[in-house]
């Protein structure tokens, strides 16, 4: 059950997108998300889809993986589609509502399709970032992007450090959970039987040791970091410098070109 969790989906292959500066990717993804909301007719959606799949192809990550990433969200997709489908006013398909004033309108149908496409493209586009950027590069990028705000008192380095530690410990804690579950099962515990109350109670023998071990690990990590003279971000250099290169410039230019096409489509058509 726990093995199904895929966090930190970084897919390590060599591609142009993998080599980009994480900052470029973060900013472009934010711009991309905004650009999704510019699209509202067939042509703009075509431009949007073409760009998205072009980028996906460039990432050299199997397309199958992108669509697998959509799976956990199908409920939300279905829910928004249904709401739009039934609750949009306009001309009913077939001329009249079919039950108690509830019916599907043409406007609702289009809106539902549009919203579903929007969500799907949003997820696909932002997964490009997580598939092509390792968690460490990602937090480095976020730290660099937030560093101008450090003067205003934003603890950019600390935030980034907390994030990378949290990401680092997810697999460790999953492993730990599996071990504890097994150990308690060996003592006759049952995690998948009985009603809700019984199941919730059955979690106590799992959660208590897990919390204790999480605190122990945090303690150990703090000591290990201090032993290596960690004292926050000031004056700290890094092994992997992130640099804005010519490639990042090209990436930005390509994105601007895409935006141009999108806006032209929107204005002209």
């Amino acid at each position: 059950m726990l093995k199904d969790i895929t966090l930190g989906q970084y897919f390590p292959v060599e591609s142009l997108l993998h080599r980009l500066d994480p900052r470029t990717k973060i900013i472009l993804v934010i711009c991309y998300i905004v650009s999704i909301f510019l699209a509202n007719d067939v042509y703009t959606y075509l431009v949007l889809a073409a760009f998205t799949f072009g980028v996906i192809a460039l990432s050299k990550v199997p397309v199958k993986l992108y669509f697998r990433g959509l799976k956990p969200l199908w409920l939300i997709l279905l829910f928004t589609a249904a709401i739009n489908l039934f609750l949009t006013s306009g001309t009913y398909i077939g001329g009249r509502p079919f039950l108690w004033g509830i019916g599907i309108t043409w406007e609702g149908l289009f809106l539902a399709i549009k919203m579903a496409l929007r969500l799907i493209l949003l997820i696909l586009g932002s997964s490009v970032l997580t598939y092509t950027t390792s968690p460490i590069a990602l937090t480095d990028g976020i730290e660099k992007l937030l560093s101008p705000f450090a003067r205003m008192g934003l603890p950019a380095h600390e935030l980034a450090m907390m994030m990378s530690i949290a990401i680092r410990f997810i697999p460790t804690l999953i492993e730990e959970t599996e071990k504890i579950v097994k150990a308690q099962e060996a003592r006759g515990a049952c995690f998948d039987h009985g009603n809700v109350v019984r199941r919730a109670k059955a979690l106590v023998p799992m959660l208590v040791p897990l919390f204790i071990s999480a605190f122990r690990r945090a303690d150990d990590l703090a000591v290990a970091m201090e032993a290596r003279c960690y004292r926050g971000g000031t004056g700290r250099t890094r092994m992997k410098q992130i640099r804005f290169s010519a490639m990042d410039l090209y990436a930005c230019l390509v994105f601007v070109a895409y935006l141009g096409v999108l806006i032209t489509c929107k204005v002209v058509v």
Binding site: K179, I180, K182, A183, Q184, E185, A186, R187, G188, C190, V204, P205, V208, P209, I212, S213
Partner: peptide, 20 residues
């Protein structure tokens, strides 16, 4: 499974980590 685990007791590595 309960019967099986009653018959075969398994003490994991660092079993003190499972105390709760």
């Amino acid at each position: 499974k309960q019967e099986l685990r009653r018959q075969v007791g398994l003490v994991f590595q660092y079993p003190e980590h499972q105390l709760f």
